[in-house]
Design a protein around this nucleic acid. Structure first.
Length: 738
DNA sequence: ATGAATGAAAC
DNA sequence: GTTTCATTCAT
């Protein structure tokens, strides 16, 4: 087992294709170098390393430090997304994230530079801080080959450095060298601690995060291990909690505090480590499942981290222990309990795993901590001690935190106790500016959670709390509002909405999980949150207006269209595959008899943002032209980006990846069908499809024949734009008949 | 795990 | 130019 991990390494390192390393690479390095215990291959950067290290305790090889890989800082757009996504969701509850992202992109596009400024500034600050904290950080870790940067590599092992965490990767030239052996931490801390630089909370955050994650964690783990983890864990969580409140007074000092804490050695408590455990990891750990340590570690992490929510955590842990974690569990069935053992999946066998998961879930429900074997025991311990406290604390903190953190004038609305979301919902109705959204998400320091988010999220989903709840809400709301307005009260509140049923464990859990996140945060995170929250949040209305304005404006300057069209025609055309989008929307084709108006409604409901544009610009076009290519065009930005696309603000700048491109090909029978494959591009280039359904010089689609249209309508497999076109066609025809 | 967007960085 | 990966979270 131990050895195995290593075996993997060679391939990665050895073969450098020249391409950037993929995720795989990430997984690789930490253990390998060391000894890779059982984990042999770690999946992801973060967590594993820690785990492993722990095991190692004696010596930490530098690699340990490396293992952890810091996450890239968010860019302006991402910050914007994070800040506004909830708003978008409020407006369009139906939309899934992808759709929301599109809208966000549109919004972003229409924002004036000035308005973007804050975001870009923050992004920059964030980045700078990050880089300071992580001197040698590479965005894209080089594979085996070190890039040019000196920071990276150690001669001895090129691969080891790959990940480039600052701490270890630190530059050789500077002091870094010693860091690895002794304690890399100190340096980092200091750097961060530097008052002059402290200005950016982001920096603080990063620094703190980073430092903690790497070294601190290791240390903690070690300590814990020695001491007996369960207790430690508890302690940690408590301490962190207690500190939170007190910390608020001085934000700037947060960093310092962290540093202090660390150095005190206190022992373990330092704040929260936020790492997410990847499934793979889990799986691996599982392999080694026999080893109690692994489980423990996991548990610990969670506690510290932002995942206070014990229940979910436990379940996750359990899953991890089993090695099943990754799978999505369906709760419905339960298999025999014994099954648990049987499923130790080293690999991911889906079916089996599922079963296991189910078992787990069930167990939990029934006995909360029904774990298996060794894991079980430990878990219990932790739980007993922790649960009560943590829970109470959580709640408490939850509100407290919010207030202190959110303090911002505008945030007030958000500060509500989790318990009563409803009220807010009412008031909230359109107050986009306030940002309730920040509340749930931000407040929770979602961001930091990123690390654990994946796991947590999965857990939630698996438990059915998240998805189902959300879906239900959506649905319900939809039913009510749907036609009328999209104001949608449905907002983030709904998330909190636990109201649904206090009794219901699921709900509770859910709400809890949120709270937990908030509470779990460290000060640093809080700071970050603050800053983040201070970013302007623009109301949807604003964007709508802008969008319209832009559209109009663009419309006036139609000249560009031509260009685009020609461009497309040249063969550069790459078509995005919208079919997925459509399908995602649980698209239901309107009844053929639907009149145009209905069609519009339909479109609007499914593609709100598109509709927006369409409304404005396209419609007119359609009037003049007999054919309604407008909607189609809208659907297919890249291609006929021409007309309508132009109006669309933003997005579509990027070309679709080759892999994602769907090409239309006329088949022998004359029908059009999507073709996949890389070759398609070439084909397209060679044979311009303008003649086909795509677009003609004017940038308009030729309409499919009615027959074709119908056929298409039936099968949803076809690219969205075709489907829409077909729909439109059908609808139009029907209308005419009437 | 995927994808949807933008953007920064590394190729 | 292309590819990764940052964010979120429904699927």
């Amino acid at each position: 087992m131990k050895g195995e991990g290593r075996s993997k390494e060679p391939p990665d390192a050895g073969e450098v294709t020249g391409k950037r390393p993929k995720r795989k690479c990430l997984q690789w390095h930490p253990l390998l170098s060391k000894k890779a215990l059982d984990f042999s291959e770690e999946e992801e950067e973060e967590d594993e390393e820690e785990l492993e290290k722990v095991s190692v305790f004696d010596e930490e090889v530098e690699e340990d430090s490396n293992e952890q890989r810091a996450r890239r800082p968010m860019n302006a757009f991402l910050l914007f997304c994070k800040r506004h996504r909830s708003l978008v969701r409020q407006e369009h509850p139906r939309l899934d994230n992808r759709g929301a992202t599109k809208i966000l992109a549109d919004w972003w596009a229409v924002l004036e530079p000035k308005e973007k400024q804050k975001y870009t500034d923050m992004a920059k600050e964030y980045k700078d801080a990050f880089m300071k904290a992580n001197p040698g950080y590479k965005w894209c870790p080089t594979t085996s080959k070190p890039v040019k940067s000196p920071s990276c590599q150690p001669l001895s092992n090129p691969r080891k450095k790959v990940w480039s965490f600052p701490s270890n990767s630190s530059k050789d030239s500077t002091t870094a060298k010693k860091v690895p052996k002794t304690d890399s931490m100190p340096q980092l801390n200091f750097a961060m601690a530097d008052p002059t630089k402290m200005g950016g909370l982001s920096m603080l955050l990063l620094a703190g995060e980073h430092a903690l994650t790497n070294r601190e964690v290791d240390k903690q783990y070690k300590l814990v291990k020695k001491m007996g983890n369960s207790n430690n864990v508890i302690v940690c969580s408590q301490s962190s909690l207690s500190m939170a409140p007190e910390g608020k007074p001085c934000r700037q000092s947060a960093l310092f505090q962290l540093a202090e804490v660390r150095y005190l050695s206190l022992g373990s408590q330092n704040m929260c480590v936020k790492k997410k455990i990847k499934k793979k990891e889990v799986a691996r750990s599982n392999d080694s499942s026999d080893i109690p340590g692994s489980t423990k570690k996991v548990i610990k992490k969670y506690n510290h981290a932002e995942c206070p929510h014990l229940d979910s955590i436990f379940s996750t842990i359990e899953a991890v222990a089993k090695g099943v974690w990754k799978e999505k569990p369906k709760k419905k069935l339960q298999s025999s309990p014994s099954g648990g053992n049987s499923c130790l999946p080293k690999k991911k066998s889906k079916p089996k795993v599922k079963t296991c998961v189910k078992d787990k879930v069930i167990h939990e429900d029934s006995e909360q901590c029904g774990l298996y074997s060794s894991t079980k025991v430990e878990m219990k311990e932790d739980m007993t001690d922790v649960s009560p406290t943590s829970e109470a604390e959580e709640t408490h903190l939850g509100s407290t935190d919010l207030q202190s953190t959110m303090a911002g004038p505008h945030h007030s609305p958000c500060t509500h106790s989790p318990v009563k979301p409803k009220e807010e919902a009412k008031g909230k109705e359109r107050q986009t500016e306030v940002t309730c959204e920040s509340n749930p998400e931000n407040r929770g320091s979602r961001k930091s959670e990123r690390s654990c988010k994946g796991a947590l999220y999965k857990t939630l989903v698996s438990e059915g709390m998240l998805t189902s709840l959300r879906a239900n809400i959506d649905r319900g709301k939809r039913g009510v509002f749907r036609a009328s307005d999209h104001d949608a009260n449905w907002s983030d509140d709904s998330w909190t909405v636990p109201l649904v049923g206090p009794n219901n464990p699921k709900k509770l859990k859910k709400s809890k999980s949120k709270d937990e996140s908030s509470q779990g945060l460290g000060k640093l995170e809080e700071e970050f949150e603050k800053k983040f929250n201070s970013l302007p949040q623009y109301s949807p209305m604003t964007f709508d207006k802008k969008g319209v304005a832009v559209a109009k404006k663009k419309k006036t300057e139609s000249s560009t269209l031509q260009e685009e069209a020609s461009k497309v025609g040249k063969g550069k055309s790459k078509i995005k595959d919208f079919s997925t989008q459509l399908t995602q929307c649980s698209f239901k084709p309107p009844h053929p008899s639907h009149p145009w108006t209905n069609l519009h409604l339909f479109i609007e409901s499914y593609f709100p943002h598109l509709w927006l544009v369409h409304h404005d610009s396209t419609m007119q076009n359609s009037t003049s032209k007999t054919k309604s290519c407008a909607p189609v065009a809208i659907m297919c930005p890249d291609v006929q980006g021409t007309t309508s696309m132009e109006m669309l603000v933003g997005s579509q700048k990027r070309k679709a990846r080759k892999t994602k491109i769907t090409h239309l090909v006329r088949t022998a029978d004359g029908s059009v069908s999507p073709a996949e494959g890389k070759d398609m591009n070439q084909e397209q280039d060679k044979k311009p499809l303008p003649q086909q359904n795509l677009c003609n010089e004017k940038g308009c689609y030729s309409n499919p024949t009615s027959e074709e249209a119908e056929r298409i309508t039936v099968s949803q497999e076809l690219p969205a734009f075709f489907s829409l076109a077909a729909l439109a066609e059908v609808a139009a025809m029907e209308n005419v008949h009437r």
